[in-house]
Nucleic acid binder design. Structure first.
Lengths: 352, 352
DNA sequence: CTGAAAGCGCTTACAG
DNA sequence: CTGAAAGCGCTTACAG
């Protein structure tokens, strides 16, 4: 590959002048600039980004460590992150943790070794020493979706509390009383927060959340299937299963179907995260939708602010309930049960 | 960040010795090695991969340019690519072309600038000058899924011909006669090959594929919806729509539902690419499954062979038909219509 | 077994 | 406006 020396020789100038011409430095004569550009074209020269990075100590690259590429939520997040980053002049390198803390650390380490300018992460655990060290050492960092309490890093995420309360209101209105949840790992914020939001909402309706109705999943499909089978084996199975993410809902559908049961007749289902397929499942799945694209863009803006010396802001955006048919048919009840303390916020009713 | 100089100073050796110790060079005394390791731990030193790459002229990084991250097929491909690469000691940087040739070129250029060791690509078009130049210039390269004819680059892909013939046999057996296809861009191999395979299979059954039954899509959901609407508006709409990928099938489902029609009663649907959600759609979708994980792994092995001086091999793996209910209920016909020339190969019948 | 030195391909003060 | 030179952090022949 042609190097800057070859271009300099071909253009009859020094490498310094080539560098300046290519970087749009004003103090280059029109003549020199033209000769450089000509040589660049003739040689098909492309600057070596590795050399440039070593010299300037910046890579114009962001690292993004997502929890699971097979999860459409993270895939959509990754897409919006890349788009916004590109618009701001950054590339992004994606690492897939596959919900495994050690794989997450592998990617964080690799990314740090490559001297990425900043790190966007959705932690799969409560904070490994590596991640904590990086944050403390001042690596520009932003948490997205999931975060680690007690670490001084901006957080961009959705707040699902209101939407979860709306969901519980919807379920109660349909007459359900035995509600269960498939939780994510307790070490993740989304793993514990969604259970707590669910528990709090149930409490408003005077409903308990017994331990047997809290199934421990890992945000991947197989765990959703396993937990749902456990629920179905209970002497008194729940009437509703709320999956804390879309992949565990997929697993739940697998389990229900494998027993020859039907949603919602035999058991109702709802999910955190909305995805396009939920419109076409049998039945369409009631879900809590996050403003995924906006989260990705806000996270990039916060990280780039941090990198470029501005003050980054944490952002929390609301999630919202999308009612479909997987919890039973909705009909206007003569006497809607109002929660004791707060009335539910407006709910989007899907046209599907 | 601590550099190799800091480590050398702390350990009381030269940077050369630190480098050798870290790279497991045999000619380093046990004593020196121990002092280096101690200094490394104390300083939390991590070698700068940028500097190392500049010096060694290798990045141990593979570039992967996929057509669309929102497509679960490519997402699964990306996952298997990353896994196999990691096992072989390589990182991978993913670029999402979003089915746009100019965005594909942007990523190829960025990846080349970063001096990745090799490039895995699933081209969104028939070959841009940039891609062609890179191949000709000797950049280690492998095409996966889609490829560019006339370029001397190994290809790893699935052959869907047999599966498409099985699909057509299945459709004929169900009594369908007016079959349509939502095609991908003609400039892509999968865009044109799938249409040709479909046309050839129909010919075996003496069935035509009129131009009005070939809808031009772009492999993304919206185009599937648009094309399907066009089909439904025809004076004589097709009885079956075969979507050339899973996202266009999603769009087709959207269109059918928007009209208040039902699959398969009003119109049947089949798709190229199988994804987990097809088991749970209403109705479950008959699809052609690719050995996606194996394709990703084989592509990485071919590329690494090429990079490390061995001779890479092209690989073609068979796809297979998975029958579900979206084309109508299957029942054993008294007189199965056999194709004139060849009998269909065994078909996997899904349990779902 | 070890160190001094060159060099990978850039950028950028410094001097003219 | 331009060039010579230093230096980013490594690796690796070369000499001892």
């Amino acid at each position: 590959m042609a190097s800057i020396k070859d271009v300099a020789a071909a253009a009859g100038v020094s490498v310094a002048t080539v560098s300046r011409a290519l970087n749009g430095h004003p103090s280059v004569s029109a003549d020199a600039r033209a000769r450089v550009m000509e040589a660049v074209d003739a040689l098909g020269y492309r600057p070596n980004a590795v050399a440039r990075s070593l010299r300037t100590d910046q890579t114009h690259t962001l690292g993004l460590v997502i929890s699971d590429v097979l999860n459409p939520y993270f895939t959509e997040l990754a897409r919006s992150v890349e788009e916004e980053a590109r618009a701001l002049g950054y590339s992004v390198i994606i690492g897939n943790a596959d919900e495994r803390p050690e794989l997450q650390d592998h990617h964080v380490r690799t990314l740090l070794d490559r001297r990425i300018d900043g790190l966007l992460v959705s932690p799969t655990d409560g904070g490994s020493p590596l991640m904590l060290d990086a944050a403390r050492a001042g690596t520009p960092m932003v948490f997205v979706d999931r975060w680690i309490p007690g670490v001084d890093v901006p957080v961009v995420r959705a707040d699902g509390q209101t939407a979860v309360r709306d969901l519980v209101a919807h379920l109660c209105r349909l007459g359900h009383r035995r509600l269960a949840i498939i939780a994510g790992p307790a070490a993740t914020t989304t793993g514990s927060e969604r259970v707590e939001a669910f528990r709090a909402a149930l409490a408003e309706y005077g409903l308990p959340l017994p331990d047997v109705y809290i199934g421990q999943g890992d945000f991947q499909a197989e765990s959703g299937r396993r937990v749902t089978e456990g629920f179905l084996d209970l002497p008194q199975p729940p009437e509703v299963v709320f999956a804390a993410d879309n992949l565990m809902a997929l697993g739940a559908l697998d389990a229900v179907r494998a027993r020859g049961l039907r949603v919602p007749d035999d058991i109702a289902l709802a999910a955190f995260d909305d995805i396009p397929w939920f419109v076409h499942t049998d039945p369409p799945v009631t879900a809590i939708a996050q403003p995924t694209g906006e989260l990705g863009r806000a996270a990039v803006r916060a990280l780039v602010d941090r990198i470029e010396g501005r003050t980054p802001r944490s952002v929390t955006l609301p999630a919202r309930l999308v009612v479909r048919r997987s919890c039973g048919e909705t009909h206007v009840p003569s006497q809607p049960p109002a929660p004791p303390t707060q009335s539910p916020s407006p709910v989007q009713r899907s046209t599907s």
